[in-house]
Amino acid sequence: MMNGYRAYLPILPVAATYALLLGIGVVSPDHWQLIAQLAFYCALGQAFNLFMGMTGYVDFGYVAFLGIGTYGMAVSIYTLSDKGLGIGVVLIGLVLAAIFSLGLSLAVGAVALRLRGAYFAIATIGVNEGFRYLLEGARIWNGADGIIFSRHLRQGVGRQTAMALSTWWADILVFGVAFLAAVLTLVYMRNKVGYALLALREDEDAAKVMGINVTRYKIIAFITSAILAGLLGASAWALKLTYVYPSDVFAIHYTVEAIIIVLLGGAGTLLGPIFGALTYGAAKYFLAIVLPGFQLLIFAPVIIAIIVLFPDGTVGLLKKRLRDTPLGKFII
């Protein structure tokens, strides 16, 4: 077991990567939106990995937390923009996003976390779909009409500020979420939560028998991961795009992207999701440019090949190789 600052050295490559990305974005503002998209994938992967990577539980309905976070921000801006709070609506939006995703994760946790394996995966899909249709069926938050709040944001904070919020600050927030997720992942890994969850991932029943309060740690990781997703939705989807439709934000397909990112890099590693996000995001972007319309046809077989050939993901593999070298202490 490592102690002191050495245990937290692996945060350096993470910080360096994000700093580099930010740097590129600042120096070459032409590519800012691309950088922002990559940051979104990094944050998505990191936040998803925090629970999935540590526990091995696949939350297929993970996107529900992004969705409800998006609504948190949307509701705040939509209803409070004329109250003269200025930039305060954004802060309230972030708080609401956190509260909403916390609430939903508690509800889901109480139900689905009792289940394991495929049953858990299916239950979480059920939560995501069920929640979406509850919004549409009961016309909560305008139902399927969604909330379009571009005008409200502009009225609340002014045209220039609104533009800066959507095209710059929203992305900075995404970076913040990504970094926060990385820090929390490392802190959990180095503390009781991580050890307990490692035991759980290896053998849940054995961990229980040994007197580890598995459920408690599972819920801690689950809630943390959910709140990060809520904040991510609030910034990357609400603040940036200034509208929300339920069919757009409760789309399972984003969970699949999170899974791809985590698997590419290596589940349960710290650097893996970043590597996965950068590879996936960049590949997707350039395929959209070079071969418009054929991205998925190319992606799907490649992904299958990667899972079959590198089941540990790239960083997982690297971690094994570098375990006893001087570089090893940076890579987890």
Binding site: D30, Q33, W237, P292, Q295, L296
Partner: peptide, 15 residues
């Protein structure tokens, strides 16, 4: 190709 997806629209537009 934005793949009918909202997050691709912004980066492709900026490009």
């Amino acid at each position: 190709d934005c793949e009918s997806r909202k997050e691709s629209v912004t980066s492709l537009l900026e490009r």
